[in-house]
């Protein structure tokens, strides 16, 4: 017993010393700017910049001269800070940040179920079974693939079986948009408050049969919009009301006129600029179980 402990300890110490010496001898100098930039980046490794992770992006900025404004999560402030480190002036506003928006309101009791899904609790798996467990082939399944994918803990599953996006926390990284097999999530500027909560492109009658809160392509919104911002686009049978965010003034007339109440106006959020996202990412990367406790 005594020899066992001693011999292993001695071996460990000997190897440790050898490695320490080798580490000095074979040390690779890393550009300190890489680490500095890495600290600014959110550290969520969402991949929206086009690089596998935040550290790869930091490396690419320093070594390959990649653009400094690719991170959608931290916006213009971060780009400026990175520019300071690199000694380059980054000018121009990135504009307001974007947040994910769910283009579906067909929660439990509103959208008609096609069958009872008892498989793996994942939207991608459900999408393989007869195009999903709802009659509507365009809607949200509510199985939480987006909730699990969000690197910032910004999405929770609501009581009505639809994901709720916390716009204060969402950074617009777009991971959920890419993960959603129904493509029912979209990125929109955080200042955009009016949204068409439906993605169903079927004819009005079919859409209404599938879901209580469906866009029935009546074009009442299009006729009443003073700015010409909302339009039913697409051919008959594959059309949907779409808001042009450039033109929309959030007046809310379409919200009142819509007969199926599928257009919603949200309350504005306090902050539309860039925030420090490091905290959320840290929470997520330290084994966030998506319990929702961090929200309270």
């Amino acid at each position: 017993m005594f020899y066992a402990v001693i011999s292993l300890a001695v071996m460990g110490a000997v190897f440790g010393v050898i490695l320490a010496v080798a580490g000095k001898k074979f040390a690779v100098e890393v550009d300190p700017r890489i680490e500095a930039i890495q600290k600014i980046l959110p550290g969520a490794n969402c991949g929206s910049c086009g690089y596998p992770g935040c550290s790869n992006y930091a490396e690419a900025i320093v070594l390959d001269g990649a653009a400094m404004s690719l991170c959608p999560s931290c916006g213009s402030d971060a780009a400026k800070e990175i520019g300071e480190i690199m000694g380059v002036a980054v000018d121009g506003e990135m504009g307001q940040r974007k947040v994910a928006q769910l283009m579906c309101a067909g929660g439990t009791g509103k959208a008609k179920p096609l069958y009872k899904y008892e498989g793996i609790q994942d939207c991608k798996a459900a999408a393989l079974q007869y195009k999903g467990p709802k009659v509507c082939n365009y809607g949200c399944f509510g199985l939480g693939t987006c909730v699990a994918s969000c690197p910032f803990c910004a999405i929770t599953m609501g009581d009505d079986g639809l994901p709720v996006i916390d716009r204060d926390v969402c950074t617009g990284c777009g991971v959920c948009v890419r993960e959603c097999p129904q493509q029912v999530l979209q990125l929109a500027p955080v200042g955009q408050l009016v949204h068409v909560r439906c993605s169903n492109k079927d004819k009005g009658k079919d859409a209404k049969a599938a879901c209580e809160v469906a866009c029935i392509k009546c074009k009442i919104c299009e006729k009443n919009c003073p700015e010409g911002a909302i339009k039913v686009v697409g051919d008959l049978g594959s059309s949907i009301a779409v808001i042009d965010y450039e033109k929309c003034t959030n007046c809310g007339i379409c919200v009142e006129k819509c007969p199926t109440k599928v257009i919603e106006k949200q309350e504005p959020v306090a902050e539309i600029g860039c925030r420090d996202t490091n905290e959320n990412a840290a929470e997520a990367s330290t084994g966030c179980a998506l319990c929702g406790a961090c929200k309270e």
Binding site: G12, G16, A22, G23, F26, V28
Partner: peptide, 16 residues
């Protein structure tokens, strides 16, 4: 223990 140390060593050499 031996193998882990060797791998660490190789990793340093290859990185350099």
């Amino acid at each position: 223990l031996v193998i882990a140390s060797l791998v660490q060593f190789v990793e340093m050499v290859v990185k350099k």
